[in-house]
Each structure stands twice: as structure tokens, then as C-alpha cells.
Computed example of a mutant assay.
Amino acid sequence: MSDRTRARACPERTCVGCRERSGKGEMLRVVLVEGECVPDHRGTLPGRGAYLHPTPTCVDLAVRRRAFQRAFRVPGPLDTAKLRSAVPRETP
């Protein structure tokens, strides 16, 4: 038997808001459902996904930069109400 440890490689994803890389488990997957950005907590919804840190700062950055439109390859504004309600607001 080998002395090597069998550590699984954790896939990394880039946040569409802040553009920083993090482990897939630390990110929130977002998918497009009928023109609306929907959080995919289990990671099982079909379609193209965009990854985001689950913080209000990253959500705001992604919306301001129109990152969801680029990630999902669609024109025009997208509804982010469900996504914003799923991300907890920071308390001072």
C-alpha cells in the first residue's frame, strides 16, 4: 500500500461578483430560470450555472457589472429578487 494520502481535490470556481477563486463548496451556484436568477443550493438544477460568494457585496458587484448576463449569455436585465432574498444581509 502506498504512503500517499488520498485527499480529494476540491474544484475551484470563480465568483462572478468579486472575481476571486474559492472552493466550490464555499460558493453559491446561481442558474437562470425563465429570466430570473435563482439560487441552486443543492447544485442540481439544470442549465448553465454561475458561482457567487453568498454575500451581499458579491451579489451587488455582480449585478452592477452585469456579470449574470455575460455568464448566462443572455441580453437585457435579469430579475435577482430571489437571489437577493436567499443571501443573508450583513448586520453592522
Rank of each mutant, 00 (worst) to 15 (best):
residue 29 R to Q: 01
residue 25 G to P: 02
residue 31 V to C: 07
residue 12 E to G: 10
residue 85 S to G: 03
residue 15 C to L: 01
residue 3 D to P: 02
residue 46 P to F: 01
residue 21 R to A: 06
residue 61 L to A: 10
residue 17 G to Y: 05
residue 54 P to Y: 08
residue 82 K to V: 04
residue 3 D to H: 15
residue 3 D to T: 13
residue 67 A to S: 15
residue 85 S to I: 06
residue 68 F to M: 10
residue 78 L to D: 13
residue 40 D to C: 11
residue 19 R to K: 14
residue 66 R to C: 03
residue 72 F to E: 14
residue 78 L to M: 13
residue 6 R to E: 12
residue 74 V to M: 03
residue 57 T to A: 15
residue 59 V to L: 15
residue 75 P to V: 06
residue 32 L to G: 05
residue 60 D to V: 01
residue 51 Y to W: 15
residue 68 F to H: 10
residue 12 E to Q: 15
residue 9 A to R: 09
residue 29 R to H: 01
residue 50 A to E: 08
residue 70 R to Q: 11
residue 69 Q to V: 07
residue 79 D to E: 13
residue 88 P to S: 12
residue 71 A to M: 10
residue 89 R to M: 10
residue 41 H to W: 06
residue 32 L to Y: 06
residue 10 C to E: 12
residue 84 R to Q: 08
residue 13 R to H: 02
residue 5 T to N: 07
residue 10 C to L: 09
residue 34 E to H: 08
residue 87 V to D: 11
residue 90 E to D: 15
residue 44 T to N: 13
residue 62 A to S: 04
residue 55 T to P: 10
residue 71 A to D: 03
residue 5 T to W: 07
residue 31 V to F: 01
residue 77 P to H: 10
residue 33 V to R: 07
residue 73 R to T: 11
residue 24 K to C: 04
residue 11 P to R: 00
residue 82 K to E: 09
residue 39 P to H: 04
residue 62 A to L: 04
residue 84 R to S: 05
residue 2 S to F: 08
residue 45 L to P: 01
residue 66 R to N: 12
residue 6 R to H: 11
residue 83 L to A: 10
residue 58 C to N: 05
residue 25 G to Q: 13
residue 58 C to T: 09
residue 33 V to Y: 00
residue 46 P to I: 08
residue 1 M to G: 14
residue 67 A to R: 09
residue 22 S to A: 09
residue 65 R to K: 13
residue 87 V to H: 14
residue 8 R to V: 09
residue 29 R to D: 00
residue 86 A to T: 05
residue 3 D to N: 14
residue 91 T to R: 12
residue 34 E to P: 00
residue 56 P to K: 08
residue 16 V to Q: 01
residue 15 C to K: 01
residue 43 G to S: 07
residue 72 F to A: 11
residue 65 R to C: 00
residue 81 A to R: 15
residue 77 P to A: 12
residue 11 P to K: 01
